[in-house]
């Protein structure tokens, strides 16, 4: 029982940190950079992706014994595209402002390599419970990455966080950060930070060993 529990925790945590889809696996970078000019947009994108990833994982895992191997990718894509269209319509109906802000990038969730990748690598081989945990962990990691990039860019580029003004009028915003180059720079330096952390952990471990 305890091993089962620890496996659940491990599957969840791995998506959040060790196999973080953006910072470590470098998947889904288009949305990670395109919509993260503010923290709130990053969060909205993360949650929309979470919905699609979790729902598709459930369905794929349920049907994993029924779908013939030869047509599995096409079937996965149909499933994913269905959920993306659903979230697209729902956002447009109930949160039109967010929908306008994210624009075509909601529809582009469908080509986020992260989602198809998890279906192929995990949901098609594991039971529903585990697939949900895996999808939730990966989505949490993705959302975490998007929100952190969003926060960095919004604080530096607009002087605010979740649209709350931080520094007052005297702050001269670093506008370049909310423009496209700022996206590349933010993610570049975050990756640098992740590399450094990994390296440091490795060195610590080898010292104790």
């Amino acid at each position: 029982m305890s091993t089962e529990k620890s496996r659940v925790a491990a599957e969840f945590i791995k998506g959040l940190w060790k196999e973080n889809p953006v910072f470590v696996a470098l998947l889904g970078m288009c949305p990670a950079l395109a919509v993260t000019n503010s923290a709130i947009n990053g969060l909205a994108m993360g949650l929309a992706t979470t919905f699609v990833l979790v729902c598709s994982s459930i369905l794929v895992s349920l049907l994993r014994k029924v779908i013939p191997k030869q047509v599995r990718i096409t079937t996965y894509i149909v499933i994913i595209a269905t959920f993306v269209t659903v979230i697209d319509f729902v956002l447009e109906a109930f949160l039109p402002d967010i929908h306008k802000e994210l624009g075509a990038f909601i529809a582009l969730i469908v080509v986020n390599c992260l989602i198809l990748g998890r279906q192929e690598a995990f949901a098609s081989k594991n039971n529903i419970g585990m697939s949900i945990i895996d999808a939730a962990g990966m989505s949490a990691g993705f959302t975490f990455a998007l929100v952190s990039i969003g926060i960095i860019r919004e604080v530096l580029g607009n002087g605010s966080i979740f649209a709350v003004d931080l520094f007052g009028k005297s702050f001269e915003p670093w506008i370049i950060m909310i423009l496209p180059p700022g996206g590349f720079f933010s993610l570049g330096f975050l990756l640098l930070f992740f590399n450094w952390m990994t390296e440091r952990n490795k060195q610590k471990r080898s010292k104790t060993a």
Binding site: P181, F184, F185, L187, G188, F189, L191, L192, N195, W196
Partner: peptide
């Protein structure tokens, strides 16, 4: 070595993107 790889590529891309502005 730490900087090599994706991080460096992204920063280079950022500079090219800056030029494209």
């Amino acid at each position: 070595r730490l900087v090599r790889g994706a991080a460096l590529n992204l920063i280079i891309a950022g500079i090219i993107s800056l030029a494209f502005m």
